[in-house]
Write a protein that binds this DNA or RNA. Structure first.
Lengths: 359, 359
DNA sequence: GGTTATTATGTAACCGTTTACATTTCGGCG
DNA sequence: CGCCGAAATGTAAACGGTTACATAATAACC
């Protein structure tokens, strides 16, 4: 079918070893021979067969990215960051998604063997045991926002706690005392951490928490819509709403607009994630920016460290820092949509520094 | 290092052939033997090595997706559609991006050999010659929105012409006579086709085209912003603006809002692409919906046809139909953000049907 | 000129599978 | 009991590369 190294060797009148040497410019090969081989190879449209190469070299030059889903801009950003980082190191990215069930994930893990040199796994519902039983002990793995208790894997997580904490501190700084939160999905670790940040910020600010101000939600627009209606029935009416993600903030915004509530004059609103459309809403949405593509890139880079046998034993657990993006919805002054510069607040920078625990 | 089929065979007291047969449940193998082998394999955490398998079987069970970039929701949707379709056929997706230059693309093409059974290429700047010289003749390829003149490749393209045509017909139906267009990037085929659709619709509607109504743009928000300002200086003022994509519509929206122009009362606005945030704008943006993920899925499915030796010779060139999504910005009645149902207009359905030319 | 480095090239084993073919085992049948 | 066919299993040759090792050719040295 397609042209092999043997054909090139035969046509060029040399051995396969020489052709191989030319392509991997490894050992010494005579300049004339090299040129000749290259010419023949070009004429035949030869390019090395990856599977044969992988088998012999015990490496694939590819790394796998396992996602639960590829819906929405969040995952697309992860892919972008990962692909960029991979490409910089001359690796390829093997993306695989829809691994919501344990079985699907187990299958995907198995199928990756011999296909990739390492794995980045982003799967909120995974447990350490499934990982351990389906994974070759030798395959390097980095967990992304995975929340597995098992410390025997490298892991990166969004610093939800500090993000929420700083946002609520900022709202308090506006003078708002009564701040409601729209909570995320029950049992979800992201949601819990954001709630924890909210509570800590209030208490550090000398404001008491109140159960009525903690309204349930599930990260969907619809739940944000409902939550906002519920919040507006409270009396006295809260001065600000902190939604645990932007989708819910979006839903809340719709509800408030329908009810004829003026933002940010009558009530302030802030979200979490800083999805791209946040800046195009009116009023533009204040949010906690999560460096999503950076998350993907970090994971890949850590994987390369491991592949290069650096820091192999010591597992790394890092919290990826977030940053506030202040727009109109919290009462900060208006900026045109057209200045591409996002104002960022760097207060508390030290606390935001990438925190690493090694163990 | 990791466990091979030979180890499993040895530990189970059988030959590698038998183990292989168990895993591919191919030929007849005794029920007891099968169970025993499976038990041993499980205990050893064995899973077949993909590279070895590929080499022997001459297939990889993977297909490659080459993208120019992975920025933004457009590509993420392509990936989603492709991955879904691939997974349904038990294939894996190898995503590779950042192939803007010819060299980068050529490299990517070469590197794919032995890694994938087929290729979906989405690259606006590619030429047929680069493809032909860097590709094995035997590797099936489908081009996505690629605009190469070469008919020797299967290809799928967005039906830009009809999308634009129908949108402008719809605007005419509102009674608008003076309709401006914000054009897309010069020399861009998508842009040209949309412009052609606009002109055809006007002339079919008995309205004369006018150069002053065709304002330049380059698909960016900034250019949409500028274009809108330019359009508002026209006299008499146009009744509607058709932006060649949603990003420019977004920019136009900002400009109009700044100028205090009421939408859709004073001027109507429509876009192209129907990006997800379109429905969250106020007024919600009327647009031409492009089934992006479907585009990816179609390409993959066509690839499978070819892989299964069906319709191999006859190249297929299809235009993927678009559909109108009518929201507030063109003057259609308001709908809540929360009814997830998008109103669609099916008029001219026949013309929209997937058009295929075979040759 | 013979010995020895040095450089360029060839030979063949190996990587982990699959699979055509050969071999063994066994039940059924005349 | 001997033979045959079917079923179960084993043997070994691919698949397309890389690379340790062997070999050949050339240069360098005394």
């Amino acid at each position: 079918m397609s042209v092999t190294i043997r054909e090139v060797a035969r046509k060029a009148g040399v051995s396969t070893a020489t052709v191989s040497r030319v392509f991997n410019n490894a050992a010494a090969v005579d300049a004339d021979t090299r040129r000749h081989v290259q010419a023949v190879a070009r004429k035949l449209h030869y390019s090395p067969h990856a599977a044969g190469r992988s088998l012999s070299m015990k490496r694939t030059d590819a790394i796998g990215l396992l996602l639960p889903d590829v819906y929405g801009e969040f995952f697309s950003e992860v892919i972008r960051g990962a692909d960029q980082a991979a490409q910089q190191n001359h690796y390829h990215l093997l993306v695989s998604s829809s691994h919501t069930t344990r079985e699907a994930l187990a299958g995907a893990l198995q199928v990756m063997r011999g296909r990739v040199d390492g794995l980045v796994i982003m799967s909120p519902h995974i447990d350490g045991h499934t990982l351990k039983t389906n994974l070759s002990k030798t395959l390097p793995v980095v967990l992304l926002n995975c929340h597995v208790a098992d410390a025997s894997f490298d892991s990166f997580n969004i610093d939800n706690f500090h993000g929420a904490y700083e946002m609520v501190r900022h709202l308090l700084g506006h003078g708002f005392q009564r701040i409601a939160i729209i909570k995320g999905t029950e049992k979800n670790l992201d949601a819990e951490e954001r709630l924890r940040g909210y509570r800590q910020a209030l208490s550090d600010g000398g404001v008491a928490c109140a159960a009525e101000l903690e309204v349930p939600g599930n990260f969907s627009e619809a739940s944000g819509y409902e939550a906002a209606r519920q919040i507006m029935r409270l009396s006295p009416r809260p001065a600000a709403i902190f939604a645990s993600n932007d989708s819910m903030a979006l839903g809340a915004l719709s509800a408030l607009r329908e009810m004829g509530v003026a933002l940010p004059q009558e009530i302030a609103l802030a979200g979490f994630d800083d999805i791209p459309l946040a800046r195009y809403l009116s009023p533009a949405l204040t949010s906690v920016h999560v460096p999503i593509s950076e998350l993907g890139a970090q994971a890949i880079r850590r994987l390369f460290q491991v592949l290069q046998k650096k820091n192999r034993q010591q597992k790394q657990h890092a919290a990826v820092p977030t940053r506030l993006v202040l727009r109109e919805s919290c009462g900060c002054p208006k900026h045109s949509n057209h200045d591409q510069i996002q104002r960022t607040m760097t207060q508390g920078g030290e606390r935001h520094g990438m925190t690493e625990t090694v163990g």
